[in-house]
Computed example of a mutant assay.
Amino acid sequence: MAPIPPGTLWSPPSIAPMLAVPGPLPVPDSDWAFETKWDGVRCVLGTTGDGSVRLTSRAGNDLTVTYPELQALGGELRGHGVVLDGELVALDASGRSDFGRLQSRMGVVNARRAGRLALDCPAHLMIFDVMYLDGRVLLGASYGERREVLSALAMSGAHWSAPSYVQGHGTQVWDAVVREGLEGVVAKRLSSPYTPGTRSAHWRKTKVVQTLDVVIGGWTQRRGAAVDVPGAVLVGVTGPTGLRYAGSVGSGMSEREQSELMAYFAVIARPTSPFADPVDVAGAHWVEPRLVAEVTASEWTRAGRLRHPVWQRLRPDLTRLD
């Protein structure tokens, strides 16, 4: 990097993060870069050159106090005005992002408590873009050019890094992500500019999801709908002590499927929960655990619940109504 006059302070602009659209891996892929999709919280980091940093969320909320371990990055970038884009994660012992661990850090605004949590469960900033450097706005530069600028900054610390990308070879990257148990892949067109605050087709995210069969043990009424219209089903999986509650699934269900389910629920209703463990869901209606459904989910939480579950279909081949 070029020398900066001592004492220079910059005024970096406020830049909202660019967003990706969900979709399949691009084909052909020679003009695309592929990155690991990290399971965390989007973060924009800005420095003025005085050794301090300011962190903001995707919604523009100030996160600076919440993650004090990132202040040291300001010292590494002292003398430079920079705006960086990345994902705040909490890593497990295998180096995988663990959203459950990060949740203990989120929303903390007391500096002393945030400092204690930073020691017990440190956050790590995965930096993947730079939008401003020393008075130069880089929004119009291509992704490839911006990554060259980012690489020249040579940032590496205990709580931040700038993971590399792979040009082309999307299928191989996908296979590696699945093999390592990571969240997914983000494909970015090498020629793409940075468009703040917009969901652009130049960035495409593909998530790894699990498909599994679950047993329906109850349902909840859909808000604002007529009586006896399910908004979600309460599902479980068979465990050593019986049916273990796995969460509530509502996303992805069509009106036809809702009507079909209600016809079944009227026949197999029961007064008590079929789950072996407590289910703290207001307004729950219980049914005999005879219906089996196929759902997808991104992962299991530490509490044993499905994360981001989506309804796929009822499994009549596995359902028992006799």
Rank of each mutant, 00 (worst) to 15 (best):
Q71K: 12
V173K: 05
V292P: 00
A232C: 14
R189Y: 06
L19D: 05
D85P: 11
H80R: 14
G236Q: 04
V209S: 06
Y245I: 02
G236R: 00
L212A: 08
G184A: 11
D85A: 04
G242Y: 06
V209W: 05
G283M: 10
V21C: 09
G79T: 05
L63N: 05
L133C: 09
L119S: 07
F34L: 06
V249T: 05
M131F: 05
H159D: 09
V53W: 04
A187M: 10
R305E: 10
L70M: 09
W286K: 13
L102F: 07
L138S: 00
L314R: 15
L55T: 09
L139R: 04
V279F: 06
G224E: 03
R78P: 02
G79L: 02
S11K: 10
S191M: 11
P13V: 10
G100Q: 13
S30K: 10
R96H: 03
V178C: 15
G107E: 03
A284R: 05
P196W: 08
A246Y: 04
A282F: 11
K207W: 02
P309V: 01
R146V: 02
V281S: 00
G197V: 10
A114C: 04
A162R: 04
V227I: 14
E260K: 12
G95Y: 00
P274R: 00
G184K: 04
K188E: 08
S259D: 08
C43W: 01
P3A: 14
G74W: 05
L306K: 06
A226E: 14
A176N: 11
V21S: 13
S30E: 14
S273C: 07
A154L: 13
Y67D: 02
D39L: 02
S191T: 15
A154K: 14
E257T: 12
G81N: 06
R179N: 14
G170F: 03
P22E: 11
W160E: 05
P26G: 05
S156K: 13
G283K: 09
L138E: 03
A226P: 06
D92R: 10
M126S: 06
I268F: 02
V287R: 00
M155N: 11
L55D: 08
T56L: 11
G236S: 07
L88G: 00
R270W: 06
V21Q: 13
S151K: 15
R290I: 09
E260F: 04
L19I: 03
C43N: 06
Y264W: 15
E180D: 15
P12I: 07
P6D: 09
R244T: 07
V295Y: 04
Q167P: 12
G231N: 10
L133M: 01
K205D: 15
I15L: 14
A225C: 14
V186M: 13
P13I: 13
S251C: 08
L133P: 01
Q172V: 07
I268V: 12
A33S: 06
W32V: 01
R204D: 07
F128A: 00
T36F: 00
R256S: 07
M126L: 09
G23I: 05
L321D: 09
G144D: 14
G23A: 12
S156A: 15
G170Y: 03
E76L: 12
V89H: 10
L212C: 09
L234C: 02
D175V: 01
N61A: 12
V130H: 01
D134A: 03
P3L: 15
D322M: 06
G157E: 11
R112V: 12
